[in-house]
Amino acid sequence: MKSFIFRFGLFCALFVLGLTAFSTFLKVGQKHYDSNADLKLRLLLDVKTIDPEIIVFGSSVAEGGINPLIISNITEKKSYNAALSGRRIIDWNSIAFSFLDYTKNNKVIVLDIFPNVFNKTDNLYQPHEFYPYLNNKFVKEALSAISPTYYKIATLPFYYLTQLNSKIVLNSIIGIYDLLLNSQPKMSEDYKGYSNINSNYEKGNTSGLIQTEISQTSIKLYEKLILQAANKNIEVLFVGMPVYHKGKPHYNQLDSIYNWGTIWSKEYENVTYLNFLNDSSIIYQQEYFANNTHLNKNGASFISSKIGNYLNKNKYE
């Protein structure tokens, strides 16, 4: 039995050692992979150096639709766009709660409302981007709430290796390569998290009705975020993002979805609402849109100016 215990123990120890090395390689590599999302996650969950007076959370609609540089110019306040493409509050709440936990300077959180904003997310978009931060309590909580798989990923050592794919490995190799060669990040922080969509309007596949939903999980998360912001005397500005007028009929219950901004602005003292859904100065201008729901560079400049002016008028005067 002694021989068995020794050999089996040695076998397992070497195995665990190998897995630890590989998993560390993946974590460090992914963390330093140079994408917009990775950079934001690293800055907000790990380095925690991002602490502007105005911060934007949300999805790609906000990431490409709200330009913090313009807001900063108008308000003369530091601002940062922490919105993450392809994600909704169920996914991105961890970075918002992490930010609220450490922020000392923040005054305003800007959140986008768009047609699919309250859809339930069963399949996390690009989950591996969160894997290097599994020990972060906010990430652990957010992932676990999405599915039991993420609960395992967040709580069991090496479990995320079972979700491994070529993309994770490739990202990690590039990340480690960049880290070792100390190369300059391609995703410049000068953009302040803003993702410039430099394209003309594309109609896309919008035949028929696109079903949207209002999941209670999303609503509760928004309300939790509002309350935590209130505890830190932070204002929350909901921005009802414009939808191109020809695209609007393709979405069901748009009014109900956008009405949540009104509901919250009435219910919570720290909430205000700026709704562009029916703003005729933008929704008929095709040159502002990259597609029905996403603004391009021009649209983002236009709307960011409006947000900046609104903040100047209502929050900083």
Binding site: F11, F15, T149, F158, L164
Partner: peptide, 18 residues
């Protein structure tokens, strides 16, 4: 042992763990 490790790694990395 290399074969055992190989099979174990295949189970972890290429298995469907649903």
């Amino acid at each position: 042992w290399s074969i055992y490790y190989g099979v174990s790694l295949c189970i972890i990395f290429f298995g469907n763990h649903g």
